[in-house]
Design a binder for these strands. Structure first.
Length: 429
RNA sequence: GGGGAGAUGGCCGAGUGGUCGAAGGCGCUCGCCUGCUAAGCGAGUGUGGGGUGUUAAACCCCACCGAGGGUUCGAAUCCCUCUCUCUCCGCCA
C-alpha cells in the first residue's frame, strides 16, 4: 500500500508503475473516490461538532430552548447517519482500490514483458559437462528410492509426493544447513504459524490478488500461507517498534502451501511445482531508508548465494523486469539454479524489497530520532526451498553409475556419507 | 465440545449516561535540586483522520476505552452480536 498523499501528488508515477507491472487499477477512480471520501469526512466532522455543541446545550438549557436543542440535535443526528452511510460505501470502494495500487519499481528495474527480459547480473560456476546420458531428478529419485509419486498422487491428488529414505534425510540436510547458515549471521530463527487469518495475507500483500492461489479452510476462516514470510512479517503487525531494535532479521522455517491455480498443466512432472513444500526464508524489517533497505536486499541476496555456492550448484542472479516485479515489490532478484534436465537456470530463490508496502498494510512502525512515526521497510528472500532445490542437487551431482554425490556441506547431516547409491547395488550405505 | 471470568492509554488500574482522551500510580522525556548515584520538586508524555496554514512549526475540528451494530439530544458507561484472552471440566497430542 502506498500513501494516498503520494498517490495524489505523484499520480503519473503511480500510473506508469501500474502500466509497467501490468497491474489493472484505475487510479483516476481512486483519486475521485479519495476526493469524495474527504468531502464526506469533512461534512461528517462538522455535523458531529454541531451535535456535540447541541448536546452540551441540552444539559444547560431548560424548557422550550431545551426542547428546541433536542429537536435540532435529532435532525443533525439523522443527517450524520446519512452521511456516514454514504461515507462507508465510498470508503469501502476506496480501501479496496488502495490494496491494488502497486509500489513504484526502483530506477534500475528494466522494462519488459516476461522473464526473458530479466537482466542477468552474474553467474557463478559452470554446469558440469556430463559424458553420459543425463537422467532427470524423477528417474534418479526413483532409482535411489528417494521419492514416491504415484501412490501419493492417488490419495492426495496431483502435484503430491512423498519423500522417503535418503530423500527425507537430504531434505532435512538442506533445510538445516540453510537455517544454520543464516542463523549464524544473527538472524533469529522463527517457526511461525502457517495457518493464518485473512488479515495476515492482506497485510503482507498476498491478498487480494493472490486469493485464488491460496488454500482456504472455510470452516475455520483460515488460510494456509504460501510462505513463512506471512507469519514473520505479521509478527509485528500493529506494533510501534523501538528504532534501536532495527533491523530485525528473521530466518523462518515452515511448510508452504500453494494452489498453483494458474499453472494447470505446467511442470506437472516431478518435484518442480508442488502444492506443499518446505522453505527456509529470510525476512528483514529495517529503517525507512531506501539506502538501508537496498543494502539489506543485497545482504539477503548474498546469503542465498553463499548457500547455493556452498552446495556447489551453478547458478545465476537476475534482476526481474517490471512485469515480473510483483505488486508490492520495488525490486526483485531471482536466483536461478542450473537444472540439467530442464537445460536451464530455474528459479529457486526470490529476493524482494518492498519498502513501506507491507508495513503500511500491516501497520508496522517505529519512532525515529525526531520522534515521528515511520513505517518500516520490509524485505525477504528465500534461503532454501525444498524439494525444488533437490532437483538441482540430484541432477548436477549425478554420476554415470546412477549414484549421486552428496555435496560436502551436507554430509555431516547424512552420517558422513559421500554418495547416495542406487538401491540394491554396491551395498555400502 | 460444555461452564465461568474478563478485554480501558507503554504498563498497572479507577471510572455505570453528559463537564472523560479518560482519576491515581508506575514508566518515559525535559528542567530544577544534588559532589556522583538515588531520593525529592516542577512540567510534559496516545493514535488515526479532516481542515486552516503551508510544508517547518502552529492552530481548529472529528473519531478511537477489544470489533461491529442498537437505544439516546448525548455512551467507556445501557442493550445485542462477534472476536480474543484467562480459567474449570471433558477430549486429544
Amino acid at each position: 500500500m502506498l500513501d494516498i498523499a503520494f498517490i495524489r501528488t505523484e499520480c503519473d508515477q503511480v500510473k506508469n508503475a501500474a502500466r509497467a507491472k501490468g497491474v489493472d487499477v484505475d487510479i483516476d477512480r481512486l483519486l475521485d473516490l479519495d476526493e469524495r471520501r474527504r468531502k464526506l469526512i469533512t461534512e461528517n466532522s462538522e455535523l458531529r461538532a454541531r451535535r456535540n455543541d447541541l448536546s452540551r446545550a441540552v444539559r444547560e438549557l431548560r424548557g422550550g430552548d431545551r426542547d428546541q436543542a433536542i429537536a435540532e440535535s435529532k435532525s443533525v443526528g439523522a443527517r450524520v447517519t446519512e452521511v456516514e452511510r454514504e461515507l462507508a460505501e465510498v470508503a469501502a470502494a476506496f480501501d479496496e482500490l488502495m490494496l491494488r495500487v502497486p509500489s513504484i519499481p526502483a530506477p534500475e528495474v528494466p522494462p519488459g514483458e516476461s522473464d526473458a527480459d530479466n537482466l542477468e547480473i552474474r553467474r557463478w560456476s559452470q554446469p558440469r559437462q556430463l559424458d553420459f546420458p543425463v537422467r532427470d531428478h524423477v528417474d534418479l529419485a526413483q532409482a535411489l528410492d528417494l521419492v514416491d509419486f504415484s501412490r501419493p498422487q492417488a490419495y492426495a491428488g496431483s502435484r503430491s509426493y512423498a519423500l522417503k529414505g535418503d530423500g527425507v534425510l537430504l531434505e532435512q540436510a538442506v533445510l538445516n544447513f540453510a537455517l544454520n547458515h543464516v542463523a549464524a549471521k544473527g538472524f533469529v530463527p522463527v517457526s511461525p504459524p502457517v495457518l493464518v487469518k485473512e488479515q495476515a495475507l492482506v497485510g503482507t500483500g498476498f491478498f487480494p490478488l493472490g486469493y485464488e492461489d491460496t488454500y482456504r479452510l472455510e470452516r475455520d476462516g483460515l488460510f494456509l500461507a504460501g510462505t513463512s514470510e506471512v507469519g514473520l512479517v505479521s509478527l509485528h503487525r500493529d506494533e510501534i517498534l523501538d528504532e534501536k531494535r532495527l533491523p530485525i532479521r528473521y530466518v523462518g522455517i515452515s511448510p508452504c502451501f500453494r494452489r498453483e491455480a494458474g499453472a494447470a498443466g505446467k511442470d506437472t512432472k516431478g518435484l518442480y511445482r508442488v502444492h506443499a513444500f518446505n522453505k527456509v526464508e529470510q525476512v528483514v524489517l529495517c529503517r525507512n531508508d531506501e539506502a538501508v533497505s537496498e543494502q539489506e536486499h543485497h545482504g539477503l541476496l548474498r546469503n542465498a548465494e553463499e548457500i547455493v555456492q556452498a552446495l556447489g550448484l551453478p547458478h545465476r542472479v537476475a534482476l526481474a523486469c517490471a512485469k515480473e516485479t510483483g505488486l508490492g515489490q520495488v525490486r526483485k532478484h531471482e536466483l536461478e539454479t542450473w537444472m540439467p534436465s530442464r537445460n536451464g537456470y530455474c528459479e529457486t530463490h526470490s529476493c524482494s524489497t518492498l519498502h513501506e508496502f507491507q508495513a503500511r498494510r500491516s501497520k508496522i512502525r517505529y519512532r525515529d530520532q525526531s520522534g515521528s512515526l515511520r513505517f518500516v521497510h520490509t524485505l525477504n528472500n528465500t534461503a532454501i526451498a525444498s524439494p525444488r532445490i533437490l532437483i538441482a542437487i540430484l541432477e548436477n551431482y549425478q554420476n554415470a553409475d546412477g549414484s549421486v554425490t552428496i555435496p560436502g556441506v551436507l554430509r555431516p547431516y547424512l552420517g558422513g556419507r559421500s554418495r547416495l547409491e542406487p538401491r540394491g547395488e554396491s551395498g555400502s550405505r
